[in-house]
């Protein structure tokens, strides 16, 4: 097989992996171009972690091709380990070590890379260098995990759910760091079930569900693909007749969504006044009205009928 172009940092082709009777990954393919941040977005159990761990050489695939930096796990594992930076989901580092000791430990495994103190500066943990890992906050622990992924100066960074379980402020801080890594020209494969995270960080996204990739593209392309510009959510005091609303110009769909109604529209400035007028004709008071531009969440809902966060 001819080697992929050097611009391709990761090539996954027809990858399959089954656990007992569950087909965790079901024939997916994607490519990472050097310098981009590529996101695997999907709900829990979609097969994201299995996919990334196969790419990391931690889980063997049943079939398919995984080519990392032009190398294969079967033949070049030693070389690959030197060149990858890995952050696993839910790793708890040794609590009794200090931050700096942890980085010295990880740094000792790699041929080359920044000094432990330099890696700490990259994730803004300088002032915590002598603190015990057990005493760090969730966000600080996650930043330390990132630093551990960076000590080998990797050519490719794997981040598996980097902000899961963090409070909003800590997430934002982590996003800033990842943005900084992107500016430094690093290639990143990231998994997440937060659509805002994928939208913020990734140049290109593959949406995964039940082990398959059901859509792919830039965040803009994906949102445009569902033909919905905006979402209008409203609720009323009393039963509303949806039929006249559904036939209004610019309305793609309207349906009840747990206590309120969700209306998918192309143009806000015509649809919202029309909605208010229609409710006036039905003599119903508008009790709530929210609008937002279509997001990746809406893309997922449009493709699967489910929300990302549904278990």
């Amino acid at each position: 097989m001819p080697s992929a172009s050097p611009r391709v940092a990761l090539r996954v082709d027809n990858l399959k992996k089954a656990y007992r009777d569950v087909q965790a990954v079901d024939g997916i393919h994607f490519e990472l171009v050097a310098g981009e941040c590529f996101g695997l977005l999907g709900p829990n159990g979609a097969g994201k972690t299995t996919t990334i761990e196969i790419c990391e050489g931690l889980t063997p695939a049943d079939s398919g091709v995984v080519e990392v930096l032009g190398l294969r796990w079967e033949t070049d594992a030693k070389e690959l380990r030197q060149r990858l930076g890995i952050q696993l989901q839910e790793t708890q580092l040794a609590e009794k070590l200090t931050v700096l000791e942890t980085l010295e430990l990880f740094r000792s495994f790699f041929r080359e890379g920044p000094l432990p103190a330099e890696a700490l500066a990259l994730v803004q943990l300088d002032e915590k260098r002598h603190a015990r890992v057990g005493g760090l906050s969730g966000g600080q622990k996650q930043r330390l995990a990132l630093a551990c992924a960076l000590v080998g100066n990797p050519d490719l960074l794997f981040l598996d759910e980097p902000t899961t379980g963090l409070d909003p402020q800590a997430r934002r801080q982590l996003w800033d760091l990842i943005q900084q890594f992107k500016r430094d020209g690093r290639t990143i494969l990231l998994t997440t079930h937060y659509m805002d995270e994928a939208q913020q960080l990734c140049e290109r996204i593959a949406i995964m569900d039940h082990g398959r990739i059901i859509a792919r593209g830039t965040p803009r392309e994906l949102i445009d693909s569902i033909g919905i510009e905006h979402i209008v959510e409203f609720s009323t005091a009393g039963d509303v007749d949806l039929a006249p609303i559904r036939t209004m110009a610019g309305v793609k769909d309207v349906h009840p969504a747990g206590g309120f109604f969700e209306m998918q529209v192309t143009e806000l400035h015509t649809c919202v006044p029309a909605l208010v007028g229609e409710l006036g004709r039905q003599k119903l008071a508008l009790t709530e009205l929210r609008t937002h531009s279509a997001t990746l969440e809406d893309v997922f809902v449009a493709l699967t009928g489910r929300h990302l966060r549904d278990e």
Partner: peptide
């Protein structure tokens, strides 16, 4: 249990 072992074997160690 803490997946520290898994993290360490993901390095060239």
């Amino acid at each position: 249990r803490r997946k520290l072992m898994k993290r360490i074997i993901a390095t060239p160690m």
